[in-house]
Design a protein around this nucleic acid. Structure first.
Lengths: 146, 146
DNA sequence: TTATTTTATATTGTGCACAACTAAATTATA
DNA sequence: TATAATTTAGTTGTGCACAATATAAAATAA
């Protein structure tokens, strides 16, 4: 068969599997915090922001739309990790802020990146090289989207 | 905040976004075939196999379990791309085979890999280097999974 | 031969991810 | 200043992805 159609030759299939592998490596660590990986991403935004932030802005940071974020944020509110407050100035806008519990989780989360790095078995140099290759590809592919 | 918890420093977030970007680049091309990306992956297995194959073996090729594959394959059967036939020798096993339409789709699909490669804007060398880096990371991370 | 274990698929339930659409509020503009 | 266009969230529907469980068949052990 044509070589290019072969699974093992495809860049995208590698990324697809790698994304699943890494999510599975995160799972047991995040379970200690009661979070899924996408919820952890929201928390990373909140921790680095440290002030109330609009759903829209979370979406911009994570490249996610309200169809994904709305139910996800409602689940996180039910877990009492975040609080949702509709803006007074603009009734369409919803502010997201951390609860005390949500802020507290940052302490546990600090250990996660180092643990993941160990599991990759990459050297610091390999990691940096890979990141910059992926950044280039992210730039190139983003250009071609809508 | 601790540098490591910052979104922009995380390898996994890059892979997460890149996986989504590439799926979105595939979408319009696959729409012409009436396929989603996971369905396309099943077709790649079928085209390179070219004989009836068990659900289990598709799962081994793609790292997917029956919870994902069962409904996916039923949708593909409804689209008359594949046929499901329970084995006579082993009543547990289900063979998947291509319909005439499913075989025919390969002709259209042949053009897709080259189109995607163009959209990545990578050189052949960059592509090969990136693939081998991802292969290494796939090996390393797979070791640490259950 | 019977009991136990393993294997292959299916089902159920939860949580994304996103397209398409709705609703409401703001801003621009004729 | 009406009206049109844009913005921000939310809703609905579809399709993965996977954990947990179920079911039935086959293989193996006792």
């Amino acid at each position: 068969m044509s070589e290019q159609l072969h699974l093992d030759n495809q860049l995208c299939f590698r990324l697809y599997k790698l994304n699943k592998n890494l999510t599975k490596l995160y799972a047991p660590l995040l379970k200690e915090l009661g979070l899924t990986y996408p919820q952890y991403l929201v928390m990373l935004v909140m921790w680095q922001q440290n002030t109330p932030i609009l759903v829209k802005d979370i979406g911009n940071h994570l490249d996610l739309d309200s169809g994904t974020l709305s139910p996800l944020l409602k689940r996180m509110e039910k877990l009492e990790i975040i609080k949702r407050t509709r803006s007074n100035e603009d009734e369409r806008a919803v502010f997201i802020e951390l609860t005390a519990h949500g802020k507290h989780l940052k302490n546990k989360a600090k250990l996660i990146p180092a643990k993941l790095f160990t599991l990759t078995e990459l050297s610091k140099t390999e990691l940096l090289n890979l990141k910059s290759s992926l950044d280039e590809l992210l730039d190139n592919t983003t250009k071609h989207l809508s």
